[in-house]
């Protein structure tokens, strides 16, 4: 396997700084042990795992915003209590979501939920989904 050197651009650095500021975390503290990916109940459906999300942020790769993984986080805080570096990956994910939502781009259209589902779902499901998926 050939090695590839990844350069961190100014734009990438600014992105990392922004994530640090929004989440109140120091993402560079992550040492890629993979505990979060191992305990994440949603990892199976994610296109990249939580520790890979952290890595992309560390390297300033803005493309992480286009991935499905950040939206699949259910804020269950399993990673939060288990991270050996004391990081809160759920806060990192939330700031990534917020970066998109704050540009008035929603992850879901609230009219997409069928009438039948709307009648069934409890309020807490709807309120929390709208808070996480719409800006």
């Amino acid at each position: 396997m050939s090695k590839k050197i990844i350069e961190i651009t100014d734009e990438g650095n600014a992105f990392l700084e922004k994530v640090n500021e929004l989440s109140g975390q120091v993402v560079t503290l992550c040492d890629q042990c993979g505990t979060c990916s191992g305990c994440c109940p949603m990892a199976e459906e994610m296109d990249i795992t939580p520790s890979q999300i952290n890595r992309m942020v560390q390297l300033g790769q803005v493309e992480v915003l286009d991935l499905e993984a950040i939206w699949l986080c259910a804020s269950c805080f399993t990673c939060t209590v288990r991270c050996p570096r004391g990081l809160d990956p759920s806060k990192i994910c939330e700031s990534l979501r917020q970066m998109t939502l704050r540009k008035a781009i929603d992850y879901m259209d609230i009219r997409d939920i069928s009438e039948k589902e709307m009648r069934r779902l409890p309020q807490i499901a709807i309120v929390s989904a709208f808070r996480k998926f719409t800006g």
Binding site: L72, T78, M108, A125, F133
Partner: peptide
């Protein structure tokens, strides 16, 4: 273990 929480909507 998490039940999926609000992901039940989407």
């Amino acid at each position: 273990m998490c039940c999926g929480s609000y992901q039940t909507v989407r």
